[in-house]
């Protein structure tokens, strides 16, 4: 199917949905890999819903099924049972209004295209003039601080810069929902903190709903409005922790709040409990 997504079609989809419907609704989702005897169940009975503009972090041990869950949300993978609704519509293949920043970001960039062309790539399917595309690409590169590097190939950039290209590309697509799979896992603390704030800023600027997978509990508590703890084999939602710090958040003051330590401790305990259960 060749579909030319336009700005207006994105808006239509959003308006069609009942205004009260959450951005993402996952109900009783289960996923197994393989068939019959060889089947291996990874996710079991996941039910969670994400409000518009909400920032939800998903944490869980390696191999828990976080990537699998995200692939089901994005329509790249069909759930074995259960359902995913995006803006009130059942997901059957990747929805128009959704973008993904993949876990192996360096492999998800097109190595034969320069940075600007990579960011422009998803826009080629939209009804935009060349000038509009250029302007949007410029704006996104500016937002992630890569204006200087627009003319370089991805291989000429550091890991952190490549990651920013992947983020700029996802945002240039103007999604209403952004899924991010351990986007900062391989970055140094400094770059990571910087990009965390970039993402928070972008959420405020564009009102995007974000589902953010991470290993790092501090990161989850710092970024999220809620933290979903995924654990067990097959994995289930073992806990949803509300995070209620004031916005805008700040790397220094937010992390120094006494509540920060409290919530962080709570999430840690949940993960440990969940581990002992299995």
């Amino acid at each position: 199917m060749t579909s030319f997504t336009t700005e207006s079609s994105i808006m239509d989809t959003v308006q069609e949905a009942a205004p009260s419907s959450p951005a993402l609704e996952v109900s009783r989702l289960a996923k197994s890999y393989g068939k019959r005897e060889a089947a291996k169940q990874v996710l079991a009975d996941i039910t969670v819903s994400v409000a518009r503009g909400e920032f939800v972090c998903v944490v869980g041990p390696s191999g828990a099924g976080k990537t699998t869950l995200l692939r089901c949300l994005s329509g790249l993978l069909e759930p074995t049972t259960g359902e995913v609704l995006v803006n009130g519509h059942a997901v059957d293949g990747p929805p128009d209004e959704l973008a993904v920043v993949f876990q192996d970001y360096s492999r998800s960039l097109l190595p034969w295209m320069k940075v600007a062309a990579n960011v422009e790539f998803p826009l080629l399917e939209k009804k935009m003039s060349k000038a509009e595309r250029k302007a949007l690409v410029g704006q996104m590169l500016e937002a992630v601080g890569l204006t200087q590097h627009a003319g370089k190939y991805p291989r000429e950039l550091s890991g952190g810069m490549q990651q920013r290209v992947a983020i700029a590309r996802a945002l240039a697509y103007r999604p209403t929902i952004l899924l991010m799979d351990e986007p900062f896992a391989s970055l140094d603390a400094q770059t990571r903190a910087e990009l965390e704030d970039v993402v928070l800023q972008l959420r405020d600027d564009f009102g995007v709903t974000i589902v953010f997978v991470t290993h790092d509990i501090d990161e989850a508590v710092y970024l999220g409005d809620r933290v979903v703890v995924l654990s067990g084999t097959p994995a289930t939602v073992s806990e949803i922790v509300e995070v209620c710090f004031p916005t805008p958040r700040d790397q220094v003051t937010t992390k120094a709040l006494p509540e920060f330590g409290a919530i962080r401790g709570e999430v840690l305990t949940r993960i440990r409990d969940a581990k002992q259960q299995y």
Binding site: L76, P94, A99, V100, F102, D104, R107, S108, F121, Y173
Partner: peptide, 29 residues
């Protein structure tokens, strides 16, 4: 061809021709 690139074309609804000439052929080139 790197499967991650195919995921990218699915997520961003890349048209068939563009997928062939801008993604698959360069990847195999």
């Amino acid at each position: 061809i790197e499967p991650a690139l195919l995921d990218v074309t699915k997520i961003y609804k890349t048209s068939r021709l563009r997928r062939i000439f801008k993604v698959l052929l360069p990847a195999a080139s």
